[in-house]
Design a binder for these strands. Structure first.
Length: 480
RNA sequence: GGCCCUAUCGUCUAACGGUUUAGGACGCAGCCCUCUCAAGGCUGAAAUACGGGUUCGAUUCCCGUUAGGGCUACCA
């Protein structure tokens, strides 16, 4: 019977969800769904000092917002819990103890000070810094005695002195590392917590993880992990190390050079669909020329074989374009709902649903973000208070003043107020005055919206309504 | 420093030895459409890091150089 596909995303709760973390989570999720497997969330909180209050909740919330749902994890038991490492200490102790009795690990009593000194000496002699294995061959009785006397210490794994290890990475192929460059890694810290290396192996095995899909930064320590699987006598899962996400200058993606928290993008008004689509394409592509993908499209087409090996620059321009594409794909009803929320937040009195829907229809092809509706189309909700300065100079003059005043008067007494009737009235007026319709159009748009760009003027006027149009025209005439 | 990984237009990428005058997308420039802006259509500039091999033939395979990144903690 083939093994069930089980993958996990295992973040440390040290802050907000990073876009790189989102991609790792996404690839794991897509892989699980594509293969009808399970996606597990595991919290790796073994570093007490880096723990951040509320980080787990924040992480789960952001993941949920993105549309990435886990099948097992904190709060969703699948029979392999607990899914938070600080609640699994007993398990790690039992396992590391077995390693010690089997001779694959040993107690080390070296103080941080000694370790520091050794490192400095090695550096001075231009040797690669590594633990000098001072406690590796301590007699069993001595080790026991010191431990029982309460002397603080750690447990380290015993790495073979000679030889090398080769393993197969799904993305990178064969990777070989010599044993001699591997350190006798600490497995259990003096505070009783496991290090990542112990916890990840024990948990991945106990949780029956079939594929370890994680960032490239773990590639060099993978041999140690495989060694532990062998020491325990366990089957080794498959590994896939993902390329890194980069800043525009090709250094590892970091704060300082832009936003890295998923939340930052969310707050700026980016759509989850766009972020997911974008992040998925940083290192993966479907092999053809399609680019606009929903989460379900991604699930259908995602394979690890099509994941690239080189780092990818996080390019906001393309994200913006994708946001626009996904916004255009979104039903007007949905956009109106989102817009309604935004208007509420901004303290703008909410117009009727049908009015909102018409605004959306008019602006849909002209915006990239939902907040753009407020920024570029606020005049649909409030009279303009400012008028584009360059536009004033270009379009507003004595002629325009006269023309707009006449236009206001004519529109006011016109029996109809539709796109067609408005256009006709304006064009006839332009002809009577002997000016180009364009001139009149521009002056009018500025008077009604305060802007020089916007949707088709006549549709806009119809939507605004006769009263508003006449009022705004007269107000503008007073300013000229 | 040591070890590991990576290397196609500015960016994301296609090509899995020949169908390639290296394709697409974002961005950029120009033109068309047009009341402006957007959208759309068309066009253009733009890349196989370098040097050696292997081969009848290399973007594709191998080696080296260079560059970038990662790791080198009782962090993950």
């Amino acid at each position: 019977m083939p093994q069930e596909t089980r993958v996990r995303f295992a973040p440390s709760p040290t802050g907000f969800l990073h876009v790189g973390g989102l991609r790792t989570a996404l690839y794991n999720f897509l892989f699980a769904r594509h293969n009808s497997g399970k996606f597990i969330l595991r919290v790796e909180d073994t570093d007490q000092s880096r723990k951040v209050e509320g980080a787990v909740e924040n992480l789960i919330e952001t993941l949920r917002w993105s549309g990435i749902e886990f099948d097992e994890g904190p709060g969703i038991d699948g029979g392999f819990g607990p899914y938070t490492q600080s609640e699994r200490l007993q398990t790690y102790h039992e396992h590391v103890q077995k390693l010690v009795s089997d001779g694959h690990a040993y107690h080390c009593f070296c103080t941080p000070e000694r370790l520091d000194q050794v490192r400095k000496q090695q550096q001075a002699m231009k040797l690669p810094p590594a633990y000098d294995r001072h406690c590796r061959d301590l007699p069993r009785e001595e080790s026991e005695k010191r431990r029982k006397s309460g002397e603080p210490g750690v447990i380290r794994m015993k790495v073979p002195i000679g030889g090398e290890m080769t393993f197969e990475d799904i993305i990178r192929g064969k990777v070989t590392i010599a044993h001699k460059v591997l350190d006798d890694q600490v497995l259990l810290k003096s505070d009783g917590f496991p290090t990542y290396h112990l916890a990840v192996v024990v948990d991945d095995h106990l949780m029956k993880i079939s594929h370890v899909i994680r960032g490239e930064e773990w590639l060099p320590s993978t041999p140690k992990h495989i060694m532990l699987y062998k020491y325990f006598g366990w089957d080794v899962p498959q590994f896939a190390h993902l390329p890194l996400l980069l800043n525009p200058d090709r250094t590892k993606l970091s704060k300082r050079q832009g936003d890295v928290a998923v939340e930052d993008y969310r707050n700026k008004g980016y759509l989850r669909e766009a972020i997911v689509n974008f992040v998925a394409f940083l290192g993966w592509n479907p092999g053809d020329e399609r680019e606009i993908f929903t989460l379900n499209d991604l699930i259908r087409d995602f394979t690890l074989e099509r994941v690239g090996k080189s780092g990818a620059v996080f390019n906001v321009e393309k994200l913006n374009w994708l946001n626009q594409q996904h916004l255009r794909l979104k039903p007007d009803e949905e956009i109106a709902t989102l817009l309604e929320l935004l208007l509420q937040e901004a303290g703008v009195s909410a117009p009727s649903r049908s009015y909102l829907l018409r605004v959306v229809a008019l602006m849909k092809e002209r915006v990239t973000f939902i907040p753009d509706y407020l920024e570029f189309a606020g005049y649909f909700f409030n009279d303009p208070t400012e008028y584009d300065e360059k536009g004033r100079q270009k379009h507003w003059n004595a002629d325009a003043k006269k023309a707009l005043a006449m236009l206001a008067e004519q529109l006011e007494k016109a029996p109809a107020f539709t796109t067609q009737s408005i256009e006709e009235a304006l064009r006839v007026l332009a002809e009577q005055l002997g000016v180009g319709a364009g001139k009149l159009i521009h002056a009018t748009r500025l008077a009604l919206s305060g802007r020089v760009v916007g949707p088709g003027l006549f549709e806009m006027m119809e939507l605004l309504g006769k009263d508003t149009v006449v009022r705004r025209l007269r107000h503008a005439v007073g300013l000229m």
